[in-house]
Design a protein around this nucleic acid. Sequence first.
DNA 1: TGTACATGCTCTAGCAGCTAGAGGTTCAAT
DNA 2: ATTGAACCTCTAGCTGCTAGAGCATGTACA
Lengths: 142, 142
Amino acid sequence: MLTIGALGKKTGTKVQTVRYYEQIGLMPEPGRTEGGQRRYGDAELDRLSFIRHARQLGFPLEAIRELLDLSDNPDCSCAEADSIARRQLKQVEQRMARLEALRTELQRMVHECSGGNTSECRVLEVLRDHSECLTNHEEIGA
Amino acid sequence: MLTIGALGKKTGTKVQTVRYYEQIGLMPEPGRTEGGQRRYGDAELDRLSFIRHARQLGFPLEAIRELLDLSDNPDCSCAEADSIARRQLKQVEQRMARLEALRTELQRMVHECSGGNTSECRVLEVLRDHSECLTNHEEIGA
DNA sequence: TGTACATGCTCTAGCAGCTAGAGGTTCAAT
DNA sequence: ATTGAACCTCTAGCTGCTAGAGCATGTACA
């Protein structure tokens, strides 16, 4: 039986995060000691490992919830899990493409900066005038 | 003189967002009509364009605050603006490297999935067992 | 001049996915 | 019995917005 701290250590999860997962229903309510402390077994360890691994791959918690459901029903078709993964892959590819464009623009800004004072700083100039940009980087935040 | 809605339209910013920028001190308090509605001039238009452009390039609001300060003092050395841009470039490059690793892993998951039921789904298997991963993707969220 | 109605106002709460802290309790070792 | 680390709950905060309630203003048209 593991304490919440031990569970956290084994999975690389902060204690608060484990409790948070419980709160939003991603982790089950565990057993408790007489004094009210959480104790975890192997099933919970596996589940949390699954969650953390999926998080490392960038899956949002809602997708992980679905994946856990699928994983709990071994007779379901795996098509759905596959489509969740494909969706995630697509997102990653989109973000990469966007970052690529940003990198190009930032490199250009930085390389052209000659080091005078701010009145002739290329970095600030480019920010002031969007038309100086070569690439499209319309959407914010992706 | 522009209403907040017109300003938003010109810069691709939602009205709420403009007010938010004012609230956190990134945009100045504008003049008001007798009835209390905000009215903006060209200086504010330029400032908001600057902010939005920097956001599109992924700069966090705090960095933008610094860049605006620098931009307001044309005699300062541009070294600082340069270093902010370099920092941002570095972050973009780090994120790209991370996404690259994730993409590889997700591609592998997806390509190996043969389409049976979930008990033998590669997607779920990989998530269950981290040791199946080829790449390191330790940190979450980057 | 009246009236419709788009747009404006403030205030509060919510999103993801945690993280940190206050103030108090339990557990395990000595 | 006592210490001290680790646990408990609860609340609030982070980034960068976004949405909605409930009301006021501004403008165009008849």
